[in-house]
Structures are given as structure tokens and as C-alpha cells.
């Protein structure tokens, strides 16, 4: 993104391509089969907005959060224009598009950066439980602790991670 803001066309093409794939998935999940025909429109509108308003991206912030907020704005705008009110709880967004199953580039980069600030043991726990999906007992056994200890440690790690993320957003 930073390269694109400086005018690097190849980087921009690559990023927009990647985004359009992710956005399709994101909107498809949100819209459901009834509005499948609108997915491409929304993807294009979002790409256009991201392009025209790219000046509002601040290099100190996570790129995924920025792009995600644009996509969400476009989605809400879409519902509003159709005068459909759906209740969209914030939490459902957290794990949707930006922690993609293939763990690909941008989100991963953001995650790696914040994870890097935690003690190694906590990093391992988060990776094992939250990313690879092991149970607390399994992850605990790997790290050589009881399930209870793993639970407490994971909880602390997540709290530290959240605090760190929040700090970055404020930055």
C-alpha cells in the first residue's frame, strides 16, 4: 500500500487484485444468496473508493483494518440504500475476511508484527489454539503445562494482544 501511495503501479495492481478476491468472499458471506448479483458491484465500488480515497490510509495503521472499514462502510451503505435494516454485530466482522483460511499476506503481516511483541511461550499458545485450532489441553501438553495453566496464560496473551492492537489503532 505504501508503495502504491508513492505511485508504484505494479504494487497497486497486485494489491487491488488480492483485495478484489477477498472482498468477493467478504460480501458473499454478508449478502447471502438473495443478493449474489450485487457482489461484483459492491466489490467494484469498494475498490473504487479505496483507490479514490487512498490518501486517507495512514502508513502507521494496519492496512487490513483500513480496507476492512471501507468495505464495511460500503456494505452498510448498500443496505441503507435498499432500506433494509439488518443488525450486524461488530464481532462477526472480527474473524471474517481478514483472518482468511489461507492466512495470506496482509493480515498475516499485521498479525506477525503484533505477535512478535509477546513472550515466545504466549506466541506459541496463541498460534496453537487460535490459529491452528488445537484444544487447550493439547496446546498445554505441547507447552508442558496443565490445561488450566494454558487457559490462564492464553487469556493473558490475548489481553496483551488486544491492548497492543488498540495502541496501534490509536497511533
Amino acid at each position: 500500500m505504501r508503495r502504491a501511495q508513492d505511485g508504484d503501479a505494479a504494487a497497486w495492481r497486485e494489491l487491488l487484485g488480492e483485495l478484489s478476491r477477498r472482498l468477493s468472499v467478504f460480501f458473499a458471506r454478508r449478502l447471502g444468496p438473495a443478493h449474489a448479483a450485487d457482489i461484483e458491484d459492491l466489490v467494484q465500488e469498494t475498490l473504487l473508493a479505496i483507490h479514490r480515497r487512498r490518501v486517507t490510509y495512514d502508513a502507521a495503521q494496519p492496512f487490513t483494518a483500513w480496507a476492512h472499514a471501507v468495505a464495511r462502510y460500503k456494505l452498510i451503505d448498500f443496505w441503507r440504500r435498499r432500506r433494509i435494516r439488518v443488525h450486524v454485530p461488530l464481532e462477526t466482522f472480527e474473524d471474517s475476511l481478514w483472518a482468511p483460511p489461507d492466512g495470506s499476506a496482509e493480515a498475516r503481516l499485521d498479525l506477525e508484527r503484533v505477535l512478535g511483541h509477546l513472550p515466545e511461550r504466549q506466541q506459541r499458545l496463541i498460534r496453537d489454539v487460535k490459529i491452528e485450532g488445537l484444544s487447550l489441553a493439547e496446546a498445554g501438553a505441547r507447552a508442558g503445562m496443565t490445561e488450566g495453566a494454558a487457559k490462564v496464560s492464553l487469556h493473558r496473551a490475548m489481553a496483551a494482544l488486544t491492548a497492543r492492537m488498540r495502541e496501534r489503532e490509536d497511533g
Binding site: 502504491a4 508513492d6 505511485g7 503501479a9 497497486w12 495492481r13 487491488l16 487484485g17 461484483e40 467494484q44
Partner: peptide
């Protein structure tokens, strides 16, 4: 969408 992306890339300025 691919055409849109191409036109946006062509429009890119710092």
C-alpha cells in the same frame, strides 16, 4: 472487475 483494476492502476498518481 479486472478491467476496473486496470483503469485504476492507469490512474494511479502519488
Amino acid at each position: 472487475t479486472d478491467d476496473l483494476i486496470e483503469s485504476l492502476v492507469a490512474d494511479l498518481a502519488p
